[in-house]
Amino acid sequence: MIMKFLEAVGRRADGVVNATGSMAIMLGQAVMFAFVPPVKLRNIFKQMSFVGVESVYVVILTGTFTGMVLALQSFNALKRFGAESLVSPTVALSMARELGPVLTGLMVTGRAGSAMATELGTMRLTEQIDALVTMAVNPVRYLVTPRVIAGVTMFPLLTIIADFSGVVGGYVVGVKFLGINSAVYTGRIMDFVTVHDIFYGLKKSLVFGVITATVACFHGFYAKGGAEGVGRAATGSVVMGSILILMSDYLLSSLMTY
């Protein structure tokens, strides 16, 4: 009984270690191929367009509403101290340092990560990935590298947009609905928020981009078991991607003191 339990734990741990190792190797290869010519710009742009451009609406919506709710909640809390003017720094700092990168990461993982996993999973199961190999094209170079590059470059840009829409959303609620003076709203942001705060968030989002792309590619790449397997790959990539984003967010926050 106990042995069985221990074995189960061992197998599970083995699986986790294996997955982590394979993912790290895949990421390593993808990064290597990013610097070894020939680099196919067309594929990279295609993925950038998919990951970045097509996620803009989702990110703007998420950012705006998060900013709005932050403004509303912090207003209610800060009103007790008569510190309503601190609403805007609360919104801006939360967006820039934490919520901008994390929410962008989660939303894009849900949108683009699952789609990537589905696409690669389908390619795996219909032997398209094998076909690439037989045509002497490295599938990691052809499929994973552009996606990782797209993740790394597009996540920070999406985060900037999320940050900005968050502040705008907070402005709408704070200034238009709750009656904070608009000059106070913008002025206090300038008092409390620095460019470092934005870059702090952008650094995080770089990592999230790598995580999302790698996890999605990994799940798609090693999908098996027919249509159900593709579905599992998609779900798995979203779950694992989201968890890794939240975990790494804590890690990064504790490592980057500034």
Binding site: S49, V53, L157, I160, I161, V195, I198
Partner: peptide
């Protein structure tokens, strides 16, 4: 998209000073 993102970033950077 990149241009848009950079413009927003530059704007914020300048505003925050």
């Amino acid at each position: 998209f990149v241009l848009l993102g950079l413009i927003v970033l530059v704007y914020m950077a300048f505003r925050l000073g």
